[in-house]
Design a protein around this nucleic acid. Structure first.
Lengths: 223, 223
DNA sequence: CCTTACAGACCGTCGCGTCGGTTTGCAGCG
DNA sequence: CGCTGCAAACCGACGCGACGGTCTGTAAGG
């Protein structure tokens, strides 16, 4: 309300048909949906809840989205690249394939920690909805697995780890990380998600023989 | 319908109050619920669907169960021990802790394969329901993780694997297995769940240093 | 004949999606 | 520069189906 001071009208050359602020409304809807879905789950969230959490209306909602399912899917499509970009950019900074794997794990845990609502939606609420949801679900998980697999393949090519079925291994890695995060999302344990990073790191790296077997460092629970 | 020939009345000594066949009806309801929930998910399944799939009625249903939530929880409570027992008995036959881990994995995959509906409900449909469901969800997953952890602890004690935070490792293991199974449940890949056993086995055992690092056997997809 | 086990009609609610109406802002025109 | 028309954007009351749960009734059987 208060910040509705008129914005400087840009892109006057192409946006010749525009009434109040279409994109802003759509974004408010999406933001509200993120909050509500994360709090109450897909089925628990009523469209009216989203309406109220934004300050839009039924009409506005159905002007921007076909139905409840559509906004949920749109939300996922909006959130996934955020995560991907965050992780991928952080990874690319590392030169060594194994270090990349390492960085990916750390960044992933960090990102999940900082975006609880987002994580809850992507990893918990999106499961078990049926229909076309399953397809989207696997698509999202596939993206993440593919990221891992890509790094594994590089590590194999670099001779840093032995050849293996990297696709399956990537799935397993994702599953392991996912489980830890989900447990943290539902029960609040551990309080700081990062505390288990050393253990998880050790487990995952050992699983691909990227860690010297004699190395005892970092695999104990504290320190 | 056709098989409703009167069964020989047994346990006449204890079941003195019983009209037609209480337990059988309850069981039919549970069986129907298993089918329907697995097919359509928790929210997608209507109580009337369950009624119809059994051949009971609204009255019968609400005589046996407080509400829809109750039968779902009861179903989970009934299914979990089945899985546990199957895996646990097969495991106990093995003398060596590492061999136990090995057997557990093989049996688990086998059991999941043979009970698709059951697995779907336990691992997919039960996720993201909120309320007291989350509690039950984590309880079930905790049971499975605890099974793994127990064997890991034994292996540590036996000196077969180095000391580690077995709780976290058990979570990671469960997560990895879970992911593979869920992927198989939703997309149908791989066609035979057992085909990835060698890879998964190698990954998991290596992750706890239970596999000689030089050993290349079993980590490739076939032979 | 009274309780247990079940049948099935019925009811109330809740939530999605619609639909007529209203506002906003821009374009065209004089 | 105001007036006017028009369409995009938005509002909110209502409809309507679906589904969970209740309630009255009834067959079995001790």
């Amino acid at each position: 309300m208060a910040q509705s001071h008129e914005v400087a009208e840009r892109e006057a050359h192409q946006g010749h048909v525009r009434t109040r602020d279409k994109e802003a409304t759509r974004q408010r809807l999406l933001d509200a949906a993120e909050t509500v879905f994360a709090e109450k789950g897909y089925h628990g969230a009523a469209v009216d809840d989203i309406i109220q959490a934004s300050d839009s209306s039924k009409g506005g909602f159905y002007f921007h989205f076909l139905n409840k399912e559509a906004i949920f899917l749109a939300l996922i499509d909006a959130l996934t690249p955020k995560l991907e970009a965050a992780v991928d950019s952080a990874i690319s900074a590392e030169p060594d394939p194994v270090a990349q794997l390492d960085a990916a794990l750390r960044i992933a845990l960090e990102t999940f920690t900082r975006h609880r609502r987002l994580s809850k939606i992507l990893l918990v609420e999106a499961v078990g909805l049926g229909h076309g949801f399953d397809e989207k679900l696997m698509q999202v998980r596939g993206r993440f697995s593919a990221m891992i697999q890509r790094r594994l393949d590089l590590a194999v090519q670099a001779g840093r780890i032995p050849p293996m079925d990297t696709e399956t291994v990537a799935w397993a890695w994702f599953g392991a990380i996912n489980e830890i995060v989900v447990r943290w999302l539902i029960t609040g344990q551990p309080e700081q998600l990062e505390t288990i990073f050393p253990t998880l790191r050790a487990v995952l790296l050992r699983s691909v023989n990227a860690l010297p077997p004699a190395a005892t460092e970092g695999q104990d629970q504290h320190e």
